[in-house]
Amino acid sequence: MSLIKVIIADDHQDSLNILHHFLKPLSNIRVIAQCHSSDELRELVRLEKPDLLLLDIQISNVDGIRAVQDCLMIHPDVKVIFITKCDEYAIEAFRMNAVDYILKPIERLRLYQAINKAESMILYERRQMKEKNNRNLIIKDHKGTTYVPLQEIIFIEKYGAKCLVYTKEWIYETNGNLGDLMTELDDYFFLAHRSYIINLTKISQIVMKNDTYTAQFWDFEHYASISKLRIKALKEKMLQSLHQQYFFI
């Protein structure tokens, strides 16, 4: 059974108690925390990385929409169900891809329908991520076939007629060209230079020196070059698509 981690937020304890009561029979739902303010909510999301938020649109007189926007910056994959007495924020809530918008007083069946929808989305994304993490780059040479997990690849370098595939444990050689290799990789890889493909999730920092750029990687001595013409597109993809914080020096 796949557990769904939930944080509930409301500035009225009675509302929290009702949610606890309704959620208790659901064996696949685990309430990992509750809170009464947007500040508490942001901190809990940062620490706990929940799958789902159930929250009032107003938390301690703070706009819940803004609080959720902050939470999505911290943990972009979290799903959100708003629970409120007023309906005027519904359009704005759905614009930010809220799973559902429930009006108080809460009806058990209505809540369960929303949670089932959120659960389906969460489990689908988990399956997608598992499939992605299990993918391999297939390298064939005279010794046979090697399956290199994509998550382990740090970068790929064109070296003469060959390409070198760098991982922490080994450097693999392949006769494939960079263009063909790009078609075998996931979207967190980026053609940063005519001689380099970089795994964006492995970058620790990007260093500029004399109008040239190099990518450095976590706990790895080798580095990769970045074309001056590609640096803008690379930064945009890292900051917008991956929702991560990187350092440019």
Rank of each mutant, 00 (worst) to 15 (best):
M1H: 07
K5G: 01
I7W: 09
D10L: 01
D11G: 02
H12E: 12
H12K: 07
L16R: 04
N17G: 05
I18Q: 08
L19V: 04
L19K: 01
H20M: 05
K24S: 08
K24P: 01
R30M: 01
A33L: 00
S37N: 11
S38Q: 03
D39N: 11
L41C: 03
R42M: 09
V45G: 04
V45S: 07
R46K: 15
D51G: 05
I59Q: 02
D63Y: 05
I65D: 06
Q69E: 15
D70K: 15
D70C: 10
L72D: 05
M73Q: 15
V78E: 04
K85T: 04
Y89H: 10
A90Y: 05
A90F: 04
I91G: 08
R95E: 10
N97W: 06
A98W: 01
V99W: 00
D100E: 11
P105V: 00
Q113A: 03
I115P: 03
N116C: 00
L123S: 05
L123V: 08
R127P: 00
M129D: 12
K130N: 13
E131A: 10
E131N: 13
K132M: 13
I138Q: 12
I138G: 06
K143R: 13
T145N: 09
V148F: 06
P149C: 08
Y166L: 08
T167C: 13
I171M: 14
E173V: 02
N177Y: 09
L178N: 06
G179E: 12
M182N: 13
M182H: 11
T183G: 03
E184R: 15
Y188D: 08
F190M: 01
L191Y: 07
A192K: 06
H193W: 09
R194A: 13
T201K: 15
I203V: 15
S204C: 09
I206A: 07
I206W: 08
V207S: 03
T212R: 12
T212A: 07
Y213F: 14
T214I: 12
F220T: 11
H222P: 00
H222V: 08
Y223I: 09
Y223G: 09
A224S: 14
S225F: 03
L229V: 14
R230C: 12
I231T: 10
A233R: 15
A233W: 11
K235C: 12
E236S: 10
H243G: 10
Q244M: 14
Q244P: 02
Y246K: 08
F247C: 14
I249Q: 11
